[in-house]
Design a binder for these strands. Structure first.
Length: 390
DNA sequence: CACACGTGGAA
DNA sequence: TTTCCAAGTGT
């Protein structure tokens, strides 16, 4: 059997010439690598880039994070999904400052004890930030190795995972783990892509068993996944330019994010039962729209209702708030709820000018709402159209 | 170990 | 349209 020379030097050379220029590759500090890796968990590079730049502007270092309230991290995280991540960042930031002299430990075992840092991120921090020879196995690395060695078993489960970890470890050099690791990722992202890999351009072609066998498209072996469908009912309850919102607890799903009242597969009536202590009778209850939203492995059909509250009750010492529509923009919502809010906002403003909000800037146009024209043929004796915040 | 956790873009 | 998925982690 012919032993091939190590491919690592060729990968590194390829990376240093063809690798992507990314914001987190400008300077390799542990802080910058850490934030990038957390943002990149299950999230595309193209989506992360602008959010990463924003983040670095607002939180340039560890100490800026520990001074900020969690809610501000959540706000910068809007729409990115997997909202446990900003929680983990916040907790880890405090742990680092309080117990680790404000710097990351440079050993794997300690790193993985920190919130949000698992096997992959720990490896990435060691390899990319500190240039130490540890494997960082993400989806790209998995795919590249599955093809290089034509691995015909799944790499997600424990056994395959362990095998892959040893395999990657055995191919690491002591030198330049940073370029080796990022080279694997860029190769996976740019050449050894999930579909139609560009093997003609691959610097590792002569090492690749799958390419030799023609099995690239079947590597790595994929695990099937199925999607459930679900119905969601949401309620936008309005009173004088304000909407009833509430903050979620620190739970598994959308922890600490704000939302409008909603529930799975309920009616507006049952939903109203849960919030009636904060609002009196509703008028003009109507369905104002429907949209679909997929999250995790679920496809949700969302039914959005609107109701005008004749009177409201205090929300003291509860997670509920009455908030002006303009001020909603300052709170962190998930995309699921942002969609509903956009639809509700559109409905609300379309009552005045057919949907063209122009440059009203929130509610300013309504300071003198009594003079507004009302749509023809509708009874608007009470409800939103005759009462506005001053 | 299996499953939950978000989202929006690509084919 | 539907399916798949993208620099995984926590429980």
């Amino acid at each position: 059997m012919v032993l091939k020379k190590p491919f690592a030097p060729f990968l590194i050379e390829w990376f240093e010439e063809h690798g992507r220029h990314l914001p987190w590759r400008v300077e390799y500090t542990s802080y910058r690598v850490w934030i990038a890796e957390l943002m990149l968990c299950q999230t595309r590079v193209s989506r992360v880039i602008p959010r990463y730049l924003e983040w670095m502007e607002r939180f340039p270092n560890l100490f800026s994070l520990t001074r900020a309230p969690l809610e501000e991290l959540l706000f910068l995280w809007r729409g990115l999904g997997y909202y446990a991540r900003p929680h983990h960042i916040h907790r880890t930031a405090h742990l680092l400052v309080e117990k680790f002299q404000g710097e990351f430990p440079q050993d794997y075992q300690t790193l993985v004890t920190l919130p949000g840092i698992g096997q992959y991120v720990a490896g990435a921090i060691l390899a990319i930030a500190y240039n130490l020879p540890y494997p960082a196995i993400d989806g790209n690395v998995k795919r590249v190795f599955a093809r290089l060695y034509d691995l015909s078993f799944p790499l997600e489960k424990g056994k395959g995972q362990k095998f892959l970890f040893r395999l990657v470890s055995s191919r690491l050099l002591q030198e330049n783990a940073r370029s080796f690791t990022q080279g694997l990722m860029d190769l996976g992202a740019m050449v050894c892509t999930p579909r139609q890999p560009n093997c003609g351009q691959c610097p590792l072609k002569q090492w690749c068993l799958a390419c030799a066998q023609g099995t690239q498209e079947y590597r790595p072996v994929r695990i099937s996944y199925n999607r459930r469908e679900t119905e969601i009912t949401m309620f936008l309850i309005h009173h004088q330019g304000m909407i009833l919102i509430r903050q979620r607890l620190k739970e598994r799903f959308l922890p600490n994010l704000w939302e409008i009242p909603w529930q799975e597969s309920g009616s507006p009536e049952t939903l109203y039962e849960t919030v009636k202590e904060f609002t009196g009778e509703l008028t003009e209850v109507q369905k104002i729209g429907e949209f679909s939203h997929h999250y995790c492995n679920r496809l949700a059909t969302v039914h959005l209702y609107w109701g005008n509250a004749k009177t409201i009750r205090p929300t003291d010492s509860s997670p509920y708030r009455w908030e002006t529509i303009a001020a909603l923009k300052n709170r962190p919502f998930s995309s699921l709820h942002e969609k509903a809010l956009r639809m509700g906002e559109h409905f609300f403003f379309s009552q005045f000018d057919g949907g063209n909000r122009g440059n009203m800037g929130g509610l300013s146009i309504m300071e003198n709402g009594e003079g507004q024209e009302l749509p023809q043929g509708e009874s608007r004796a009470e409800g939103i159209f005759l009462h506005f915040p001053r």
